[in-house]
């Protein structure tokens, strides 16, 4: 079977489970909204947020909630040791990585469908984002975070404390991505044109590329031991 078909098969299988259980998506959206409310407390209750702190609130909510879904996506393969059966099959580990990363990307995108509107309802006053810029930034962060997250979730799933290890491993690596995203989104919220944040966008794309490549190459090692 060709690589794209392997990826599609796995992707559809995972999505079917997700649609049936909805466990990850509900948890992600709920927790994300909760974080926004908590951060609102931290920022001062009756203060209107400036563009950059507001961008920070959005990304913290998205990334902290995403890690809930990310952990489950790989842990599911470990439940009855299905991953062993996948490794014995003709499936290439690269396809497994790509499929899992796509599932994570999809989960993040759907939870953002809830989180972004809620964010604008709570903090949106005075922000003037261009929709295309915002979509581009969301896509870039989703790519980078799901690529790095997929690789590291395989590591975390192999340890005794999956839920604890994943954030510990993932957030340090993603710090630069978050910094870039906050800066770029802050500028976009401030109504500045896309040309001004071009080098930020390029750096974010570089992050996504680096971890997509690293994940594709290293995943087979990680998954064989997990």
């Amino acid at each position: 079977m060709t690589l794209p078909r392997q990826i599609l098969l796995l992707y559809r299988k995972d999505l079917r489970v997700e649609v049936r259980k909805k466990e990850s998506l509900i948890a992600m959206a709920f927790f994300g909204v909760l974080i926004m409310v908590i951060l609102n407390l931290a920022a001062g209750l009756d203060r209107r947020l400036q563009a950059e702190p507001a961008a920070g609130v959005l990304w913290v909510a998205i990334l902290f909630s995403s890690v809930l879904g990310l952990g489950r996506v790989f842990a599911r393969e470990k439940e009855n040791n299905c991953v062993a059966a996948l490794l014995v099959s003709p499936l290439s580990p690269g396809a497994l990585f790509a499929a899992k990363a796509l599932v994570n990307f999809t989960l993040m995108s759907f939870s953002e469908l809830v989180l972004v509107p809620v964010f604008f309802a709570l903090f949106g006053a005075g922000l003037q984002p261009g929709l295309p810029v915002l979509l581009l930034l969301l896509a870039l962060v989703n790519i980078g975070f799901s690529a790095a997250g997929t690789l590291l979730s395989a590591l975390a799933a192999g340890t005794r404390r999956n839920e604890v290890m994943l954030p510990i491993l993932l957030y340090p690596l993603c710090l630069p991505l978050v910094a870039l995203a906050v800066k770029a989104t802050g500028a976009a919220f401030g109504g500045r044109p896309m040309t001004e944040i071009r080098d930020l966008i390029e750096s974010m794309a570089a992050f996504g590329l680096i971890y997509a490549a690293a994940g594709y190459l290293l995943f087979s090692h990680a998954v064989r031991e997990a």
Binding site: L173, L175, P176, L177, A179, S203, A206, I210, A214
Partner: peptide, 12 residues
């Protein structure tokens, strides 16, 4: 993966 993060860390 920690070390390949270095270029992006510098950029950011």
């Amino acid at each position: 993966v920690g070390f390949v993060d270095v270029p992006v860390v510098f950029l950011s």
